[in-house]
């Protein structure tokens, strides 16, 4: 195995064979060590949220990865290649520049109110820029009816949150539910669990970056699709929607329908694997 070992000879075959063996060991060991070192560096740099989101996104089924512009019919079926981060998207500015969506927006969709003064994240949090430069973050109406009266676990003021990272959580009967952040920034204050807003955030970029958020006419197309997905997720078997059309979601859906697979529903709607 090594020089001076009784079976070792300085013959070309010995040297070649053991040379290859040790090279393999070094390659495998060093790359394993590099992965460990990079992981510990990532931990120090607080990259978990971003990587978790990308890992989850990769595991989403294709219909969950639909591009916002496909939802509105601006383009044919297209899957988002940027993990819903339109800030990275090459095509998004082109769609915006075309201005194909109608200017008017509807605040009521499916019997729920989606105020036009705010931007919506695909994970059902909303963000509203305030006059003092802060951003208020809350949960949209559809999501609020899904979590019902579950207690919220809000981050401490001073916590840094990232877009698509965890903003706050709910403890529901089927486990914890993570709400994705629509904004990068530092939490300044937290609202009450029953309040309209959940977080006041000082955005990292100085102001609210809205490129990855939905607004106006997009919201109707998105929520309509979300309601379809919700129907599918609530169906007892994956054979299609079973809820009657035309109704309005009740205020506290888990209480009204406790036998549903809520773990699955929350995963589908709040974008968590």
């Amino acid at each position: 195995m090594f020089p001076n070992d009784y079976a070792f000879h300085w013959s070309p075959l010995h040297v070649l064979f053991l040379g290859i063996f040790f090279t393999v060991l070094i390659v495998v060991g060093s790359h394993f060590a590099v992965a460990l070192w990079r992981a510990s560096r990532g931990l120090r740099q607080n990259r978990y949220d971003a990587i978790r989101w990308h890992a989850d996104f990769e595991d989403f089924p294709p219909e969950l990865r639909a591009c916002r512009h496909a939802l509105t019919g601006e383009c044919a079926d297209r899957k988002c290649p940027n993990a819903f981060d339109c800030r990275q998207c090459r095509l998004h500015p082109m769609f915006i520049a075309k201005g194909l969506l109608p200017a008017e927006c509807m605040e009521e969709v499916g019997g729920m109110i989606f105020p036009a003064d705010r931007y919506y994240h695909r994970g059902h949090a909303w963000a509203r820029a305030e006059a003092d430069g802060t951003v208020t973050v809350g949960l949209d109406e559809l999501a609020r009816r899904l979590v019902g009266d579950a207690p919220a676990q809000l981050p401490e003021p001073g916590t840094t949150i990232q877009v698509n990272g965890s903003a706050w959580q709910y403890q529901t009967g089927s486990g914890s539910v993570r709400i994705l952040s629509p904004v990068d920034g530092e939490v300044l204050a937290t609202g009450g669990a029953s309040g309209e807003w959940m977080l006041k955030v000082r955005p990292s970029a100085g102001s609210l970056d809205t490129r990855h958020l939905l607004r106006g006419a997009e919201v109707k197309a998105w929520i309509t699709r979300e309601l379809e997905r919700l129907q599918l997720a609530l169906a007892p078997e994956p054979t299609g929607a079973t809820l009657a059309d035309g109704g309005v979601l009740v205020e506290d859906l888990p209480r009204a329908n406790p036998s549903a697979d809520w773990d699955r529903v929350y995963g589908e709607i709040f974008l968590e694997v």
């Binding site: 509105t72 019919g73 383009c75 044919a76 075309k98 194909l100």
Partner: peptide, 8 residues
């Protein structure tokens, strides 16, 4: 959804 507006 039916693609009503196909821009890009």
């Amino acid at each position: 959804p039916e693609p009503e507006l196909v821009a890009v």
